[in-house]
Design a protein around this nucleic acid. Structure first.
Lengths: 164, 164
DNA sequence: CTAAATGCAAACAGTTTGCAGCTGC
DNA sequence: GCAGCTGCAAACTGTTTGCATTTAG
């Protein structure tokens, strides 16, 4: 609720720098994508992102969204969670979800990043011991939504419904 | 290297019981599937399993493999990891990988279960605090294969190559 | 004998790609 | 003006499903 736009503006800049550094342009679609992506810290999948992008420009295509999403992951401003079901889920690589830990709700299928999950070094040591160099550690917590269970709906579930 | 067949025989029995309890039969294909699945503790995907099954009976089809895989997950003798890339990865629900933690090798893409990852209660508490009831917690550790890096190949990579 | 299991092929969903036209620099 | 970005449609991949045939009990 505080350093939101600061953090995300710098991520946007990081994205633009990435494209510039590759001698590639900052196009209208890319600007829109970065705007809608970095205006919240919510996780999203390609469809959801397309919907938000199309709220700004109706003409944007899904393939372009995928192509740029690919770049943003490479630029390390987004990372990909192997998320809910079959669709790819992306998350903003901001500081308050320090990389890669998240709750996956079994009911509403929403993916909620966990802040500071205190992931221990223990598992990394275990991996090293097995002959692997750890690159990224992530925690996935499947859970049920209490709110949805109790009241029959929850904000995340509603958020999903509003798409389309 | 010790209690291998004991553990896995009981899982096989558990699978058969599941089918029996549903008034469904123990067919040839199901027997073969259970044999090849429970003879090791390796993770696998549908293709790999099909290959191993077809080593016994050439005629088995991929759809049948998927159908029975579905049952085995429901019977809780297998669980599913959101694994390497796009394919579904399954693991035997044996005691030495206590549910759901694994290393994913970036190089050879193999998925290696981690024993006793000591996953803390902390994250579960965090989830509860956010209004979720934790159901399953899993740790995913992306890593590079030291062996592959050093020697240019590793046993897991070879294991992959031998498929077809 | 009958319900259930199977193999095949076709359907599906999400993602990727080839290509012709459009656009930013 | 030209490289590169885009939209479209078609291709692709992993998984699921419908249906006719076979099989287990």
């Amino acid at each position: 609720m505080s350093a939101t736009s600061d953090t995300n503006d710098s991520l946007k800049e990081q994205a633009f720098d990435y494209w510039r550094s590759k001698g590639r342009g900052i196009t209208a679609v890319r600007k829109i994508m970065c705007d809608v992506i970095f205006e919240t810290n919510e996780t999203f999948n390609a469809d959801q992102l397309l919907a938000r992008v199309r709220a700004v420009d109706k003409a944007v295509s899904l393939s372009t969204v995928y192509r740029n999403l690919h770049d943003l992951v490479e630029a390390e401003v987004l990372y990909e969670l192997e998320g809910a079901d079959d669709k790819r889920v992306f998350a903003v690589a901001s500081s308050d979800n320090n990389g890669s830990s998240h709750i996956v709700c079994r009911d509403c299928k929403q993916v909620i990043p966990i802040e500071n999950p205190c992931l221990s070094i223990r598992e990394s040591a275990l991996a090293r011991q097995k002959g692997f160099s750890p690159k990224r550690i992530s925690l996935r917590l499947e859970a049920s939504c209490d709110e949805l269970g109790a009241t029959g709906h929850c904000k995340n579930h509603e958020a999903k419904d509003k798409v389309e």
